[in-house]
């Protein structure tokens, strides 16, 4: 097998044009995953009855099953569930199912990270905050969460890098992202390997960028904590 340089060059801009879609999946899943993940973590930390058990089961399920399976469960299952309440979503764009799956999946991993990082804040700080007359919500917002963010940062970075890798499965639902584009172009041009190599290049570059970004964020946060 010989790699065709011209084909590599041909693939490059076409795949580059699909990167925003890949990045949008990572961004949406990170934002909604963090919000939902925080809610899931709080349900367990605050021992909210029923919600606490539900959160535990959901997190265990999302962490214990492959994301491809979750994606198809959402794709085939959600329309059926919503149909029983009279909502028809069968003609929705498939990307919404991808956004939803990846947000849920990320939420499970984020909730475990947040739970342990909130737990890592010394208990004496809670007592001190209560002694100052802060409410529980105020203590979370002003005392505990700012500290746990710093603790959670490295693991969060790894989860987001993992999310980026996982977006490579969205093509299975028919999404034309970087990999979907390789598949589509491969069947026309007869060149798959070149496409895969260019796609791999983009993923490696994005991973390195993410790693660098989190490295800098960590430095900044630890520095700020030391000075405050």
């Amino acid at each position: 097998m010989r790699l065709d340089w011209d084909t590599l060059v041909y693939f490059f801009p076409k795949l580059l044009a699909k990167l925003p879609l890949t990045i949008s999946i990572v961004l949406v899943a990170t934002v909604f995953g963090l919000l939902l993940g925080l809610a899931l973590a709080l349900a367990r930390l605050e021992r909210v009855p029923v919600l606490r058990q539900a959160s535990g089961v959901l997190v265990s399920f999302l962490r214990g099953t492959p994301i491809i399976v979750q994606m198809f469960l959402v794709y085939f299952g959600l329309p059926l569930v919503l149909q029983t309440v009279g909502v028809d979503i069968r003609d929705w764009d498939k990307i919404w199912f991808v956004y939803l799956t990846y947000s849920l999946n990320a939420a499970a991993f984020f909730s475990e990270i947040l739970r342990s990082s909130i737990g890592a804040v010394p208990k004496a700080q809670w007592d001190a905050a209560a002694g100052c007359g802060l409410t529980r919500a105020q203590t979370y917002r002003r005392i505990v969460l700012p500290q746990s963010v710093a603790i959670a940062l490295p693991a969060t970075g790894m989860t987001i890098t993992g999310l980026l890798q996982d977006t490579s499965l969205a093509f299975m639902l028919g999404i034309v992202d970087v990999i979907g584009q390789v598949k589509a172009m491969g069947s026309i041009t007869g060149h798959l390997l070149e496409g895969y190599i260019v796609a791999a290049f983009f993923f490696v570059v994005l991973s390195l960028l993410l790693e660098r970004l989190f490295h800098r964020a960590e430095k900044k946060v630890t520095l700020r904590q030391r000075t405050s």
């Binding site: 977006t167 490579s168 990999i179 490696v204 570059v205 390195l208």
Partner: peptide, 9 residues
């Protein structure tokens, strides 16, 4: 940095 699925392909 390379997704497993790409390596499989």
């Amino acid at each position: 940095g390379i997704p497993v699925v790409l390596m499989l392909f």
